[in-house]
Design a protein around this nucleic acid. Structure first.
Length: 413
RNA sequence: GGGCAGGUGUCCGAGUGGUUAAAGGAGACGGACUGUAAAUCCGUUGGCAACGCCUACACAGGUUCGAAUCCUGUCCUGCCCA
């Protein structure tokens, strides 16, 4: 399909960062077949429309899909609206709550919007699996289920764990891998992408395709990107993620908050920086020749630039340095509107001010912040939770290290 | 259907009638430190204009001066038997 790259070059590029390809030489075989027949490959990615916020961990897979598209192949995104009725048990130690139809539809739309930030819209086909799964009658479901044994399904690590730990597993959850496998059959997938947590489901697709007389898909697994905590996988529910639609500064700051040890994987999986280049940087950092922070800045810049452009990335880099390295006030401080009726004699109770600014949810929390010395107004530390502070327009309230707010008196309610 | 074991704060997990807003841990947050972090140390971690009051241990009742702890019923989960 692609004239500019040889098969070898294509394979090399596609292999970057992959964790496993099953079977090992399958990718090359599929690429060769496509080159010979002139037919683009169908690359499948199944999505569970539960978390509409795409984060960097998920982007690892999407960026790989983009590479396929750039080589002329066709990406088929399957929104698992039907399988979402089950809730993917992957990596779960508990049954997932079922989603309503409305939620699924809404999440599905958000997904498509966000996917466009990474994928080539022209070469992306989006389908909902209710299309074929919803058309099956019970006898057909039973027929499909006959292709898989309980023992096979229970091999799955998460099921096995739950089973041995006497956690509940609902019967319908066992059908999830089967449903996902059938998706591959329905669209005649050549390659299915997924994270490591999808191993079982994707391999089940190979088996089922073969049993139903199709050429089995090649499974291409990307590693799960570790989250900001440096331990668990990046996920929305754990709150350790960087969303691809987050503001440039947030994105940049989050990357900077990574542990040094994580820089390597992030370079590999979340950027296009060539491997020899970032490896050299990391080696310099490790030897003490370069400050690791400098390398991290490079990383943060590369990631931010990917989603917000080069100029924007450079701008937030400078902003970040000003605030964190030089401890200066940020240039853009959100305003805190102070309604006139909150004031008495031009003063306001400090605790009220903090909750008004939304820096604390409850008075108790705000009190604590004050008592612990985390609060200052115009550089003057406030430690008395009873304090009534004078409000001047434009004064800067600082709570903790990260929260800044500029007071703004509102004249009209 | 029967028997047994359970359901505690954001999470894990002690507590089986009386200083129990509930040990301990994790997480989170604040401070110190620093290269932004991490690690470490110190502190905080239900609500309330707050040395007091209110609300909390699946849910609903009950016993008691007093219950997360005892009783009854309901819901939920696991294991075993059928």
């Amino acid at each position: 399909m692609n004239d500019s790259l040889s098969i070898d070059e294509q394979v090399a590029r596609l292999r970057r960062g992959t964790q496993a390809i099953v079977p090992q030489d399958g990718l090359r075989a599929k690429l060769e077949k496509s080159a010979k027949t002139g037919k683009p490959l169908k690359i499948k990615l199944g999505l569970d429309p539960t978390a509409p916020d795409i984060h960097l961990g998920f982007a690892v897979v999407l960026r790989k899909l983009r590479q396929f598209q750039d080589m002329g192949h066709e990406v088929i995104i399957i929104i698992g609206d039907y399988t979402a009725l089950i809730g993917d048990p992957s990596g779960r130690s508990a049954t997932r709550p079922m989603l309503s139809k409305d939620e699924i539809a809404r999440n599905g739309r958000t997904y498509v919007e966000q996917l466009a930030r990474i994928l080539d819209r022209e070469k992306t086909i989006v389908r909902f699996n209710s299309e074929w799964l919803g058309a099956l009658d019970f006898a057909q479901v039973v027929g499909l289920a006959a292709h898989m044994t309980v023992a096979q399904v229970l091999q799955r690590e998460d099921f096995a764990n739950r089973y041995t730990q006497r956690q509940p597993i609902s019967l319908h959850e066992l059908l999830y891998p089967l449903a996902q496998a059938y998706d591959s059959v329905a669209i005649h997938a050549d390659i299915e992408m997924g994270g490591q947590d999808q191993t079982f489901n994707i391999l089940a697709g190979r088996d089922l395709q073969e049993k139903m007389g199709q050429e089995p898909q090649v499974a291409l697994f990307m590693p799960l990107l570790v989250g900001l905590d440096g331990e668990k996988k990046m996920s929305k529910s754990l709150g350790n993620y960087i969303g691809i639609s987050e503001s440039p500064l947030t994105m940049y700051s989050k990357v900077m908050s990574l542990g040094d040890a994580q820089m390597g994987v992030y370079f590999l999986l979340a950027t296009d920086v060539p491997e020899p280049e970032f490896e050299a940087l990391l080696a310099e950092a490790a030897s003490g020749k370069t400050n690791p922070m400098t390398v991290k800045h490079r990383l943060a810049h590369a990631i931010t630039a990917l989603y917000h452009g080069d100029t924007e990335a450079t701008a937030v880099q400078e902003e970040w340095k000003r605030v964190h390295s030089e401890r200066q006030l940020p240039t853009d401080i959100p305003e805190i509107a102070i309604p006139p009726d909150a004031l008495a004699d031009g003063k306001i109770w400090i605790v009220r001010l903090i909750t008004l600014a939304n820096f604390a949810k409850t008075n108790g929390e705000a009190r604590r912040l004050v008592e612990q010395g985390g609060v200052s107004l115009d550089d003057e530390k406030i430690t008395d939770p009873q304090a009534q502070v004078a409000v001047t327009d434009g004064a800067v309230l600082k709570v903790g290290k990260k929260n800044f707010g500029k007071l703004a008196l509102t004249t009209r309610p």
